[in-house]
Design a protein around this nucleic acid. Structure first.
Lengths: 202, 202
DNA sequence: GTGTTTACCGAACATTCGGTCAGTTGACAA
DNA sequence: TTGTCAACTGACCGAATGTTCGGTAAACAC
């Protein structure tokens, strides 16, 4: 798949540098991570990192784009634009869980961005665009009468994606189930409720 | 209420120093905040801060204790120990939302702690005790048949409190509704679901 | 072998970091 | 008016920060 270089020493490829760096960022926080920390995790010296990337912030930018590109693809998908709004919303939720699990470390990093640099603020803007998209879906579902009238759509959006985004805080691919199973459970609980009314559900 | 000192210049009291510092921590992140940033927000020089607190980490410790003490009181309350498990769980959720809104900046800070120092690790341990308490409540409710059998109790705990904790990410006391109204909506959605089945709900 | 390419090291850089300390300021009590 | 005491300033410290740069070592082509 990937084209291997013909000359020179073998070492880290751009992909592994990014993956390891993001892991450290998520463990200690971006601001709490020094280039020395990254160097230790990569098994090289600090200066060697600059052979692969322009600097710490570029590393962050590349990681955030990984997450945001996934969400952009979701928004552009035709399945988010056809059919009843409540079904479109369910699809968006399921796909969001899929992306979250698929690109877990990158999305985790994205959800912790506070806007301390131009890079972070750009990421926050792109993320807000996704939030607005989801919010619109919920409002349409409410307008079509598919969402309980005693719940504010804006609040539903936030609580629903509060649950979705929380996945980054506890999901671990090795012991957690499949992304589909996780999405199933999440949709069941948030759409139909966790309470059992007279043994209604198996 | 508060005992005012008799001598010396008027200036910041310990309370306002902590409140302002926590606001800056939440805006830039703890690691992303320098003592210089705090000094600017307080309107004093860096060195003046050390007249009020022993250092940056003590400021963090005091803030985290504010949040954790609230949760500890919740766990110790008898209302969390009497009655059907599902009702106890509902009370715990409502009370958690109350504490979260009441001590918003402190809980916000707590939920972002990663464990980079002894102070942070101690806070994480106390927080884990609370999580274990909640997890136990959910398991009891499931054992009593009050939670849908097709949902894993551990997963319910995480998604439920994922929604609860997300409040720190978007709730703003000035424009958001009351804590009780918020808790009502959250319980309605997570316990009974957001979906309207044949115009079931008003 | 030689030359080239890529990956890396080690030492330094300027800057910022959290924190210290000797002194100054200003509000109050007497 | 004077003394006291909390609040604060400004200059400074050593350590850590992100980054640069000249040189080196390993893998490959020839």
């Amino acid at each position: 798949m990937a084209v291997q270089p013909r000359h020179g020493r073998r070492g880290h490829d751009p992909e592994s540098v990014l993956a390891i760096a993001v892991d450290v960022f998520n463990e200690r926080g971006y601001d709490g991570t020094s280039m020395e920390d990254l160097a230790r995790a990569l098994g090289v010296t600090k200066s060697a990192i600059y052979h692969h990337v322009a600097g710490k912030e570029q590393l962050l930018a590349r990681a955030l784009d990984r997450a945001l590109d996934g969400l952009s693809e979701l928004v552009a998908d035709e399945r988010a634009a056809t059919g009843p709004a409540i079904e479109r919303l369910e699809w968006v939720v399921r796909r969001s869980v899929g992306i979250l699990v698929d690109r877990l470390p990158y999305v985790t990093l994205l959800l912790r961005v506070r806007g301390n640099s131009a890079t972070e603020r750009r990421a926050l803007e792109r993320r807000r665009a996704f939030d607005a998209f989801v919010s619109h879906q919920v409002k349409e579902a409410a307008a079509e009468g598919a969402i309980r009238a005693d719940l504010d759509p804006a609040l539903v959006t936030r609580l629903l994606f509060g649950a979705v985004n929380s996945i980054t805080e506890w999901y671990r691919p090795e012991r957690g189930g499949s992304a589909d199973g996780l999405a199933d459970a999440l949709v069941r609980m948030t759409f139909d409720g966790l309470r059992d009314h007279d043994g209604r559900n198996a």
